[in-house]
Design a protein around this nucleic acid. Structure first.
Length: 441
RNA sequence: GGAGAGGUGGCAGAGUGGUCGAAUGCACCGCACUCGAAAUGCGGCGUGGGGGCAACUCCACCGGGGGUUCGAAUCCCUCCCUCUCCGCCA
């Protein structure tokens, strides 16, 4: 959620910043009009309240002095104000709701250095701070070469008898998968490896959060009110709870409605959780294999920082995610998303795209975003800075990385001609030393 | 699931219809005393919003929402949460 006062002070900057965004429902002038209306209503209702308070106080004093006649006279004078105040309060709530509802569907403002564009074709490859194609190539795993035609992950998985979409469909329908045997273990190994890496070496605190959350939490991280159709809900009492679409929701909302001390920042959190997405609107996209599922595992990183630190933290978080792919030995590239391809709440986003030789293309395996105070304002998450001033925190989130997609990447990059899959060195300790899946031993 | 108790400022804890935004204690921040510190004394010490250049002033907030009333922390309804006991359960 953006700050109406800022919009008011910078209407041209607001309109210009959002010109590259898709589907911006309001321009600054409309929002300012809603705010003016709100202030007008507030001024009039508060005037009535002040008058009522004064007279009521006098009634109290009159009664204390046993001056019933005076009290009665005052009572008659104030009687009509009751309706005025009640109507005014209703009007005030209405005006405030209108403004908040409008603001809550305005996307975040892209940072200055975000490339302006319509969609993913305008994304720009990123080589790191002060980086170049040469330095990136040197520090990242090289693209693998094959002496045979590389297969897609589901071909390998099904041939091994360890990846079963048909059984999953019997249980749950399309967009689910059953993994078995060593492939199930490999998925588990990848998750453990990544979580350990972030906790032991990157400074994150491990969290095991609830997988079901309230609407309030979803509102805080922007899933509501605009993206309700992407979520799964379960009935609960008279209401409902949502299955988390990403651990970003519980992790980020841990600081909601609180005032942190400066020493608590930066707060770095990580979790390995299942994620649930209805993938409404994705019908027909990536229907083969386990690239796009209703349920998948993901290691999520979240950081809560002071406003001055969020830019640096963003770079750190990307490099933390990159470290996963480097250690797994998976070739990848980093893209800075263009204004047209960025998510609703992001100021700036880097995507990590892993090389999938079976598909002969790069696919998103991680997305790392800095949100500024956009979510903090929705959650009312603040901190007391060193001057004692209370300000909104900045929030960041990134996948570090998607486990299911990392499994795909390993299967495609480490596949061998005989249909077996070599296990990256760093995962072998998590596989009881196993070096290859599907090999005759 | 059943029965009961309770949610008040950073914490503890008063307050059951009328100068209560809220006593008191602790914590914290200034100042005084001190060579310094402790102790002591004095003062300050919540959040959000409206108006104002400002000094300042007004409104709202005692778990959330709604209601009764001229007036609600206080009464009523409802939801959420915490605790105790019983039952059930991985």
């Amino acid at each position: 959620m953006l700050d109406i006062n800022w919009i008011k002070a910078n209407p041209e900057a607001f309109d210009r910043a959002l010109s590259g965004r898709k589907s911006v429902p309001f321009r600054s002038a409309e929002l300012i009009a809603l705010d003016d209306q709100r202030r007008m209503v507030i001024a009039s209702v508060e005037e009535a309240q002040a008058k009522r308070n004064t007279l009521s106080k006098q009634i109290g004093q009159a009664k204390a002095q046993k001056d019933e006649a005076k009290a009665q006279a005052l009572l008659e004078e104030v009687a009509h104000l009751k309706d005025v105040v009640q109507n005014g309060e209703a009007a005030r709530k209405d005006a405030e709701d209108k403004l908040r509802n409008a603001l809550s569907i305005i996307p975040n403002l892209p940072l200055e250095d975000v490339p302006v564009g319509d969609d993913e074709s305008d994304n720009v490859e990123y080589f790191g701070p002060n980086g170049s194609p040469e330095t990136a190539a040197k520090s990242r795993p090289a693209k693998p070469t094959f002496s045979f035609a590389p297969r897609e992950h589901f071909e390998t998985g099904e041939a091994l008898g360890m990846m079963d979409f048909e059984v999953a469909a019997k249980l749950s329908g399309s967009r689910f998968v059953v993994l078995k045997s060593q492939l199930a273990r490999l998925e588990r190994a990848i998750g453990q490896f990544m979580l350990d890496l972030h906790v032991d070496e990157h400074g994150y605190t491990e969290v095991l959060p609830p997988l079901l959350v309230r609407d309030d939490a979803l509102y805080g991280t922007n899933q509501l009110p605009k993206f309700e159709e992407d979520l799964f809900f379960v009935p609960h009492g008279d209401g409902r709870l949502a299955l988390i679409p990403t651990a970003e929701v519980p992790l980020t909302n841990m600081v909601r409605e609180s005032i942190l001390s400066a020493e608590q920042l930066p707060m770095r959190l990580t979790a390995l959780t299942p994620c649930f997405r209805s993938e409404a609107g994705s019908a027909g996209r990536d229907t083969r294999g386990m690239l796009r599922q209703h349920q998948f595992n993901k290691v999520e990183m979240v950081a809560i920082t002071a406003p001055e630190k969020s830019g640096d933290e963003h770079e750190k978080m990307v490099s933390d995610a990159e470290d996963v792919l480097k250690r797994l030995g998976i070739h990848y590239r980093v893209m800075t998303l263009s204004t047209g391809d960025m998510g609703f709440g992001a100021q700036k986003t880097y995507d990590l795209e892993a090389w999938l030789p079976g598909q002969d293309t790069y696919r998103e395996i991680s997305s790392v975003s800095v949100c500024g105070d956009f979510q903090a304002r929705r959650m009312d998450a603040r901190f007391r800075d060193t001057d004692g001033k209370v300000r909104h925190v900045h929030t960041l989130n990134g996948s570090g990385v998607a486990v299911g997609r990392a499994l795909i990447a390993v299967m495609e990059n480490y596949q061998q001609e005989d249909g077996s899959v070599a296990i990256p060195d760093v995962l072998q300790p998590y596989m009881k030393g196993l070096k290859t899946i599907g090999a005759r031993s």
